[in-house]
Simulated scan of single mutants.
Amino acid sequence: MRQEGRTEVDEPDVGAPIAGFDRTTVELSREEGMRLLAGVPFGRIVFTRNALPAVRPVRHLIDGELLIVRADVGSGFSQSVRNDRSVVIAYEADDIDVDRRLGWSVVVTGLAHPVTAPALVHRYSARLGSWIGADDQLIAVEPTLITAIALAEVTAA
């Protein structure tokens, strides 16, 4: 059936239950969230650009309690950090198996500031490599809030 301005499209049935299983979310600790982040190489940084939310993919690493990201200077994110020196950002990374509907998601919220110490720039650059090009900038994020969840299965009784 066709309605004015709309077309019918066959959509995949992503909400179909898997026989014998249900899904739930489980809150994880701050420490577990940081451990999970350390196991993946990239995520998405969320920041404000021209008074609107913006999202960019970036590479990251964990150094103690810091989240270190490598951002393209042209993305607007690193420019805003250079201008303000303490920008509140959100960072999200996940690992989700779409077919099994299992995995995890971690969101870090905190203050971001440029990494300027030459020894740290050298060390982080060596570990992260270049993301986009020579104009990448290293940015440290001090996590204030870490929200981590696991998408887990519950066996039907």
Rank of each mutant, 00 (worst) to 15 (best):
G74A: 12
S105R: 15
T147S: 15
L67W: 07
A152V: 04
S78H: 11
I139M: 11
F47N: 03
G103F: 09
W131K: 05
H122F: 14
R56A: 11
A152N: 05
G129L: 02
A16C: 06
R127A: 15
A152C: 02
S130I: 10
F42S: 15
T25I: 09
S86K: 13
P53E: 01
L102P: 04
W131I: 07
G110Y: 09
D84M: 02
G110F: 07
I146Q: 08
V26F: 02
D99A: 11
R2L: 12
A157K: 02
R23A: 04
W104R: 02
R123K: 13
P53D: 00
A16K: 14
S29C: 13
P118S: 02
P17K: 01
A150W: 03
P118K: 12
A71F: 08
V141S: 10
V98C: 01
L28W: 08
R23N: 08
T48D: 05
E8H: 03
S105H: 10
L37C: 09
E153N: 10
S130T: 12
V98K: 05
I149G: 00
L67M: 05
I139D: 05
T109D: 08
F42L: 07
R30W: 08
R35M: 07
G15K: 04
V55T: 06
E92N: 14
L52Q: 09
V69H: 06
H122Y: 14
E65A: 13
A152K: 15
I132K: 01
A119S: 14
S105Q: 10
H60Y: 10
L151F: 15
D13G: 10
D10I: 12
P114S: 10
P143A: 09
V106K: 12
A112N: 04
P41N: 09
A90Q: 08
E65T: 09
A90S: 14
G20Q: 10
R35P: 00
E92C: 14
R6E: 08
D135Y: 05
G39L: 05
